[in-house]
Design a binder for these strands. Sequence first.
DNA 1: CGCTATCGTGGAGGACGTCAACGATGGAGG
DNA 2: CCTCCATCGTTGACGTCCTCCACGATAGCG
Lengths: 152, 152
Amino acid sequence: MEVLMDGTVLTDDVGYLLSRASGLLVRATNAALADHGLRVRSYSALLLACDSGDGMSQRDLAEALGLDPSQVVLLVDELAAAGLVERRPSVTDRRTKLVCATEAGHAARASAQRAAAAAHAAQLEELSDDEREQLRGLLGRLVRAGQPVLRG
Amino acid sequence: MEVLMDGTVLTDDVGYLLSRASGLLVRATNAALADHGLRVRSYSALLLACDSGDGMSQRDLAEALGLDPSQVVLLVDELAAAGLVERRPSVTDRRTKLVCATEAGHAARASAQRAAAAAHAAQLEELSDDEREQLRGLLGRLVRAGQPVLRG
DNA sequence: CGCTATCGTGGAGGACGTCAACGATGGAGG
DNA sequence: CCTCCATCGTTGACGTCCTCCACGATAGCG
């Protein structure tokens, strides 16, 4: 067991700060994405669908997003209802449905990404470029250590 | 790949990593605190109640936790039902109720803190002490920048 | 052909976030 | 003193999110 001085003061606890910082950024990004009819959840799913050219199984989507597969159903339903993605049957496995971004989906992604990046930058303006990179590196290692199978 | 734009790849997005890392830590800490009948929420509130000797108004609790005051009501109800805190009337303002930790509350805090710190350390073992400190500093600045009024 | 695993889907239940309203109290101004 | 408004705790409503369990359909293996 190591030095456990973390958390003696709540506002200095890494977990507390992580939760608060995440909440602040999510809220700000949700507000920015509202104009585009998206939320962080659906926007993230749209991003993944766009970036995987051939489409992405809902199972892989769930794993990449850290969600339960049952949540992905509603998420894809919502995106499909908006015409941003479509479910295409896989030719190799008739159980899986590949989530593919439509042309409208790619267009929405482009404009939504600008809005998200703006909110993002506003929320992170406290940090310099180097510090942002530092933060990203540290968080990336934490996430990959806690969630071993992570594509990318 | 040397892409420097945030969000071009979802798994490199600071917001995504923040949300995932926070979720991982919260889940692990909740599991560790379950044996003590606490969750991260109630544990955090208990910490604040313990550390403010004279007690803490529910309004200040809400602000410190970043919650809506209405949520604090149920939170304190739960802790009070478990005998860990008690609501004492303020002598200077009869509207406010000061949340004070009982002796059982202080005891529970001590044992729960060990469990929480263990889960904490396990989840953060990927990082060195220096890096943890770095992370804490960066997150602290983010939170304080986004939530100007924050007291220790 | 069975047996087991996986994929998408649905539903139940709880935790959580947000907002609006209320009674009780405090504080400032006429 | 009395009136107006702000604040504190509380309640309720509504929507989002998470977790788990179960089902039909399909895959893969022996």
